[in-house]
Amino acid sequence: MRMRVPGPWTYAAAVLAVVTAVWVTAPAWSGPPVRFVRTGTDPLVPTPGPRALRGPAPAPVRYAYRPVCDDGGEACKHWILVSTRGERWWLPYGFGEAPLALSRDGTRAAYWHQKKQRYAVVDLTRGTTTYLPQGIAAPVGADRATQPPLFSLDGRHLLVAQDRLTPEAEDVVPGTLVVVDVTSGRVRRLPRGERAAGWTARGLALMTVEPAGRSPGHVTSGTYVVRSPEGAVVSRAALPGNLAEQAVPSPSGETLATVATDVTPDGLAFRGVVLTGTRAGAPVRTVTPRLPAGWRVGEILRWEGEDALVAETRGPHGETAHHLLGLADGSASPLGFDVPPPPDDSLTVPPEGTRLVTGRVR
């Protein structure tokens, strides 16, 4: 009896069957992972992390924030600048312990340069840096500063507070307010006792609050003064103390905005935003922002033109957000500032005081 010898095709079929069985039964981790290729712009690809800005910024800065993290990286030590396109940078030797200022158009930044031990003003459009005179003292820190640096509306002048610490370094003593011409470096000191409320087109608005004596209905009275960058008084008005305490002036200086709250047995009750005319020194109207249920205005950061406010808002469970409040209709548009919260297991205490600074909002 003759035995049949398998032909070459029979051997090939057998080998293919074995390979197929091995591929099917092998564990998933035995081979390389499957890669999916996407064409065009991929919105899921994360943007690069923060990096040092060493040259011109390709877009204006929309806002800056102080991060809270424990990884010890460079991005944890600095203010993080976020552009209108979403890029994130930090400024060399500009650590988060010191305050930072942004111009309204997002093209200038001012901060304490730790290496130079002087205030640095960066033209973000050109990538150039100007250092202010050495006679300006170092800040006491962003957490403890009574007044952070503040650019004038045109970005030409910078307000700086010369606070100092007590010998025990436990308390902050409010110091003289100085106005620096960024171009010439000329420094002018303002009278003591005045609180900076904000810049207007005519100069720096300042408040002085004093006991009202026998004035009915108010325990304090306020004086509203606008000084030119050279220090001359441009205008003056009297205000009730309860409206002058935390009032923020409009760019024209004609209107003040104040968060109105009432003290109740259950705590503070938000009553809206009171607009006060500086000429008459009396409230004009109250705006009730159309915020989500349970939300309220915590702080007015600044005016955006004469028709809107940039405000920090707070939710019913301690949440924090930022809205653009329309004064004509009370509209509240979320600004979408993305400030990462501290990690759940973070050992770092979130910074108090100013943690966000606004630049070009819209």
Rank of each mutant, 00 (worst) to 15 (best):
Ala142Gln: 05
Gly135Thr: 15
Val82Trp: 03
His317Ala: 14
Val310Ser: 08
Ala247Arg: 13
Trp295Pro: 03
Gln134Gly: 15
Pro167Leu: 11
Asp171Thr: 14
Val172Phe: 04
Val179Phe: 01
Lys77Pro: 00
Ala269Phe: 13
Pro229Ser: 09
His323Asn: 08
Tyr224Gly: 04
Trp199Met: 05
Val140Met: 09
Gly31Thr: 15
Ala328Asn: 08
Pro174Asp: 04
Val226Thr: 06
Thr41Gly: 02
Arg186Lys: 14
Ala282Val: 14
Tyr11Phe: 13
Gly86Asn: 13
Leu309Ser: 07
Pro133Val: 06
Gly213Glu: 05
Ala293Tyr: 07
Val273Tyr: 04
Glu304Asp: 15
Trp295Cys: 01
Pro58Ile: 10
Tyr11Trp: 14
Pro148Asp: 10
Pro340Gln: 14
Leu206Asp: 01
Ala260Gly: 04
Val259Phe: 08
Gln134Cys: 00
Pro32Lys: 14
Thr25Glu: 00
Ala57Leu: 13
Gly359Met: 10
Asp71Arg: 12
Arg35Cys: 02
Tyr11Asn: 00
Phe95Arg: 14
Ala269Asn: 06
Leu204Cys: 07
Leu356Trp: 11
Ala59Tyr: 05
Met3Val: 15
Asn242Val: 14
Pro316Gln: 02
Gly277Ile: 09
Val219Tyr: 04
Arg108Ser: 06
Leu158Pro: 00
Arg236Ser: 13
Val22Gln: 09
Leu132Gly: 09
Ala269Asp: 07
Asp266Glu: 13
Arg35Phe: 09
Arg227Lys: 11
Leu158Arg: 10
Thr84Arg: 14
Pro60Lys: 03
Phe270Thr: 08
Leu204Lys: 01
Asp307Cys: 06
Arg88Asp: 08
Ala196Tyr: 02
Ala109Cys: 06
Pro342Lys: 07
Gln114Leu: 12
Ser346Trp: 08
Thr20Asn: 07
Asp105Ala: 04
Leu275Pro: 02
Leu53Thr: 06
Leu100Asp: 07
Pro211Cys: 02
Leu158Asn: 02
Arg271Thr: 07
Leu327Gln: 03
Trp303Ala: 01
Leu100Trp: 05
Phe337Gly: 00
Val140Pro: 00
Val37Leu: 13
Thr220Leu: 03
Leu268Asn: 05
Arg2Tyr: 06
Leu91Ser: 11
Tyr111Gln: 03
His322Ile: 00
Val284His: 00
Ala308Pro: 08
Ile300Phe: 12
Pro167Gly: 07
Val287Pro: 00
Leu132His: 03
Thr354Ser: 11
Asp71Glu: 05
Ala145Gly: 12
Ala161Ser: 11
Thr183Lys: 14
